[in-house]
């Protein structure tokens, strides 16, 4: 397992996040978010968390993108002039971001470097799923919480996504 691969992936992660946030077209931003999720998923797989990687990929890169793109379809269609104005204002705002990030990275690295000792071995990908099952044995309370949450989500969807009826209830 090579350290450089992970570093490249990390840089890719941050870069796609910047792109995702700075793009003016919402559709492309959603795709960039999906790419970010994919890279994160690969990182997780390489670090020895295959189950989490699968979840991240299917749920985030898949479902969330669907949600966003369907939400994006509601954007107002701006006139050309308005569009150009908004582009300019937007780009001015986001110009600062990459520079800020690089500076931040350097500062944090300098702060941390005295503490860095060595390189621990990276676990090889694919730790047993048997451990996972044992884990759900000790995380049952969270499961109950998630059940409640899912039910809440169902009602949320019912409340929000139903078209307004004409007082028929």
């Amino acid at each position: 397992m090579n350290l450089t691969i992970l570093v490249i992936l990390l840089i890719g992660l941050v870069a796609s996040a910047v792109v995702c946030v700075a793009l003016s077209d919402l559709l492309k931003a959603a795709i960039a978010l999906a790419i970010t999720s994919a890279i994160l998923s690969i990182i997780m797989f390489l670090m020895g968390a295959p189950l989490a990687a699968v979840f991240e990929l299917s749920v985030c890169a898949g479902m969330i993108t669907v949600v966003f793109i369907s939400a994006c379809s509601m954007s107002r269609i701006y006139t050309r002039k308005e569009h150009e104005q908004r582009q300019k204002a937007r780009n001015r705002r986001f110009l600062l971001l990459p520079a800020l990030l690089v500076a931040l990275a350097v500062v944090v690295f300098l702060v941390l470097s005295p503490h860095i000792t060595g390189v621990s071995p990276i676990p090889s990908g694919g730790s047993g799923s048997g451990v996972q099952a044992a884990l759900w044995g000790s995380r049952q309370v969270d499961l109950i919480g998630q059940i409640i949450l899912i039910l809440t989500g169902v009602y949320g969807v019912i409340v929000f996504f139903k078209e307004k009826e004409a007082d028929g209830k």
Binding site: M44, M47, G48, A49, L51, A52, F55, E56, V59, C60, P123, S127, V131, Q132, A134, L135, W136, R139, D142, Q146, L149, I150
Partner: peptide, 13 residues
Amino acid sequence: MAQAEAYVITIIV
């Protein structure tokens, strides 16, 4: 790592 995985899955959901 296994614990962390469980947390990550929960958070994603």
